[in-house]
Design a protein around this nucleic acid. Structure first.
Length: 303
RNA sequence: GCUCAGAUAGCUCAGUAGGUAGAGCAGGGGACUGAAAAUCCCCGUGUCCCUGGUUCGAUUCCGGGUCUGAGCA
């Protein structure tokens, strides 16, 4: 049975969605979202979801499937993504995973085992309060006593990861090392990452921020707030959302909000590069100015 | 035109009681197993505006100049 799975990744604003869409048309593929924010409903403009036209011409999976009040997790995403990929393959089509969320990419690429660590909101809040009272260093010491190996891998200032490791320990699983996983043997991956000159990418990022605002990002965000979604929700912490919330609260003007979005998006793109560079088997597709989408797709198919 | 204030990293500024300088932001690099667009770590040499003077030594003190801002005319 054919088990080819294309992956189109790359930093934000590098043109993943468009390339994936053209690739899908060329090889009769279907797109599987691998972007943590595009999974959410009502967050269309800020997360730069694919166009209506693209969505109507090519099957797009895992877009707008979760309510913003819900908390998506890697474990959950893995189940959904693997299920979708298998379903597409069973119909004889080719899945094209598209997105730049590194951890979610890992969940597909590697045979990751997420133990049964149930959600325990109460315990998490307890630990968060403890961290606030006693400080991050104290929490790290505490983890040191429970799981020295995990403590050695986590920086004492990284409260969030320390708490997660404590939770995992308490459910008897401990936290695993990301680089210890074997590649997922079920698929024949064709893994590509788009890239371009840094200056050009930043220019695209800046211009996209302006475009999102002129396309109605402010209305989208105030709509979400009116629907009752709290600014504290993980979904509302996405780039574009948190900055517009600050503007709506009167913390700064729209110009500054836009500048913040640009800056935070640039930082994010940098982190994405760091993540992607760890994969020694990824094929980088360097896009040059003036190159056609068709040309890029050709290069992907020929490599 | 006069008076005053300023001129230091890409930007905003601190500082050196005279021994060639450091923060924030920007920028660069990195980590990552259930929040990941999250969270966290590392990276600071630049004619200290120019030019004379004093001094062993001036970015720092003094004189002159240039530019910028405010006030007065």
């Amino acid at each position: 049975m054919n088990n080819v799975v294309y992956i189109i990744s790359g930093p934000t604003a590098s043109g993943k969605s468009l390339i994936a869409y053209y690739l899908a048309k060329r090889i009769d593929g279907e797109i599987v979202n691998c972007d943590s924010i595009q999974l959410y409903k009502y967050m269309d403009i800020g997360s730069a979801k694919p166009s209506e036209k693209a969505m109507s011409e090519v099957k797009h999976h895992l877009y707008s499937i979760e309510d913003p009040s819900q908390n998506m997790t890697v474990a959950e995403y893995r189940k959904l993504a693997i299920g979708t990929i298998n379903e597409i393959l069973s119909r004889g089509k080719t899945p094209i995973v598209c997105g730049g969320t590194g951890l979610y990419l890992n969940a597909i690429l590697y045979d990751m085992d997420f133990g049964a660590v149930p959600d325990d909101e109460e315990r998490r809040q307890e630990l968060e309060h403890l961290a606030e009272e006693r400080g991050s260093f104290y929490m790290h010491e505490y983890l040191q006593g429970l799981d020295p190996e995990a403590a050695a891998r986590i920086h004492p200032n990284n409260t969030r990861k320390i708490i997660r490791a404590i939770e995992a320990y308490e459910y008897g699983k401990g936290i695993k090392n990301l680089s210890d996983c074997p590649l997922n043997p079920d698929y024949d991956f064709r893994f590509f990452a788009l890239t371009m000159e840094r200056e050009w990418l930043y220019d695209r990022i800046n211009r996209r921020a302006s475009r999102l605002i002129s396309e109605g990002l402010v209305d989208e965000v105030s709509g979400l707030l009116e629907m009752g979604y709290s600014p504290d929700l993980p979904s509302m912490k996405g780039i574009g959302y948190k900055e517009i919330i600050g503007f709506l609260r009167g913390e700064y003007d729209l110009f500054d909000a836009k500048e913040l979005i640009m800056r935070n998006t640039r930082h994010y793109a940098k982190r994405q590069y760091t993540w992607l560079k760890r994969y020694d088997f990824v094929k980088w597709i360097e896009i040059t100015k003036g190159e056609t989408v068709g040309g890029v797709v050709d290069r992907i198919l020929n490599s």
